[in-house]
Nucleic acid binder design. Sequence first.
DNA 1: CCATCTTATGCTCACGGAGAGTATAAATGG
DNA 2: CCATTTATACTCTCCGTGAGCATAAGATGG
Lengths: 319, 319
Amino acid sequence: MARSPQKKTSAPASGNAVTADLVAVLVAVTDGTPKIMTIAGGSALPSGPFEFTHRSLQTALRAWVEAQTGHPLGYVEQLYTFADRGRSGDARSPHSVSISYLGLTREDRVGEGFEAHWSGWYDYFPWEDHRDGAPAFIAKTIAPKLKTWAKAAPSPTLQRERWQRCAITFGLDDRDWNEELVLQRYELLWEASLIPEANHSRGREASVVPGKPMTADHRRILATGIARLRAKIKYRPVVFELMPAEFTLLQLQRSVEALAGRLVHKQNFRRLIEQQELVEETGAMAADTVGRPAKLFRFRHAVLAERAVAGTKLPLSRT
Amino acid sequence: MARSPQKKTSAPASGNAVTADLVAVLVAVTDGTPKIMTIAGGSALPSGPFEFTHRSLQTALRAWVEAQTGHPLGYVEQLYTFADRGRSGDARSPHSVSISYLGLTREDRVGEGFEAHWSGWYDYFPWEDHRDGAPAFIAKTIAPKLKTWAKAAPSPTLQRERWQRCAITFGLDDRDWNEELVLQRYELLWEASLIPEANHSRGREASVVPGKPMTADHRRILATGIARLRAKIKYRPVVFELMPAEFTLLQLQRSVEALAGRLVHKQNFRRLIEQQELVEETGAMAADTVGRPAKLFRFRHAVLAERAVAGTKLPLSRT
DNA sequence: CCATCTTATGCTCACGGAGAGTATAAATGG
DNA sequence: CCATTTATACTCTCCGTGAGCATAAGATGG
């Protein structure tokens, strides 16, 4: 970084010039399946060079997505910025800075005739879907391979630490599954060389763990996005960005479950939603359903103005 | 942004080249005062061009800080990336991308003879310190000015919305103070032109609200860092990065209070710390104290390996 | 028409965490 | 010895949350 702080309003780019890329994790939920927008046959996230004709990064991303989908992007949040020195390893290739964003939409909003597709995100992270319990291949395939990797550590202490890390992130040894550790799990599998992208020497030692790979570090970026979203839905009403204008409480629940990758207690879910006054009845009832018909609800946009957003966990004094 | 996703491994920079800057919010807590590292007489955060000789942004930041302070940087976290088209407004000046980081250290680790200084962060955000109750000037100065600003909105509805926003972020009208809304408060004051930095036409209409200004958007970046840190200390044991090797529970509590800007219930704070097994006794007692001497504790680094980190708020099913 | 299935919706219970207060112990300086 | 300051141990009360029971309201098949 800097030589000296004084030089911060620094000299024009010389050897210092880079290119800026945007990478987008665009999420939608359709029929209980979380999907992401992909290009290149599902092997990459939509991305492209940043055009400085826009006022801010956020504006640039919105403009681009709207051009692609024909509809405004509901919720946008910056994820992370990566810097590569010469992405391809070629020393002369330009340095690049990749700025990644998370965006929430609805699949049906996307116009036809684009090269982009929607892919289920569990295609890329099959071990993340615990809605029907932990996938069998975690115990059958992943856990043994991780154990082997842990045992390959040089010292017994390091072996224990490695395995403890595996057990925590994957909920092994009777630990609870923590759905938010998406990135940690991906990084662990990467370190253990169980991810195709990790084997730099041109994809031999092919996919040792199920899950579709992606270009460069796109799957890591996706993991970051999923983790962020799974954390966010717990303290911010962002799920509604993924819902149609009217929905039943079960549909809402299914969307949350799709994102979280685990099931939710129905009655408690409803209690939570209603006591927070997040929704209001439309008066209409859902049609075409099995079982007792459900009321239709809509999101109360007013709550966004009414309430602040943060949570607390300190033993605060009210005095 | 992108014209077409296909072009993502895009052409070398032409009109697209930018410079990459790092901006650091380096925090320490000394004697119950949260401090940040500043340069230029306290009017700017340390920053400088990113050198692509490093493997990653994080590495670059660490290396730079270690060169400055002579000690490793405990905790580092990326904050946000901003893009400006021509920072100075000069259309021909290079576009820049500023990547900001939050870092935690201890003041005494910094070597002497550097141009950097430590400034109390409440010098820049005096309205954020509620340890002795809400500062009087919030009710006396800020609230009335915000009321005026709210009333200046075109329609009655907008006026009410504006005021509601003010009341929420500043805890007015008998609302609770939410210490995490640091950025929201800064942005609100900015919008209401109560912040010198907001008055683009060369600092007339000088500081209408107490608090030291900063260069460019540095105070906004600092607000982002404070907000992030205030949120983080509640669910991650990062305070310990700011503590000496051994400390009393009261010292620990004072540090948390310094960061949060509000007081904490002593007994409950201890209960929380101890039941989470975050610390262990050193056996020694604190010297040079008034009142009954306190036990000295040290951070149990093992907890970082033992436990995962995330929290939950969904009505999950355990079955 | 009834039995059964499915989903919707209302209500209760138990447990644990968090805010708050009381009480006692151990040091210091007059 | 007493006032003061800080340390430390308990207790009490709410309330949020996980969990389960019970009932309602529709469809479907015999």
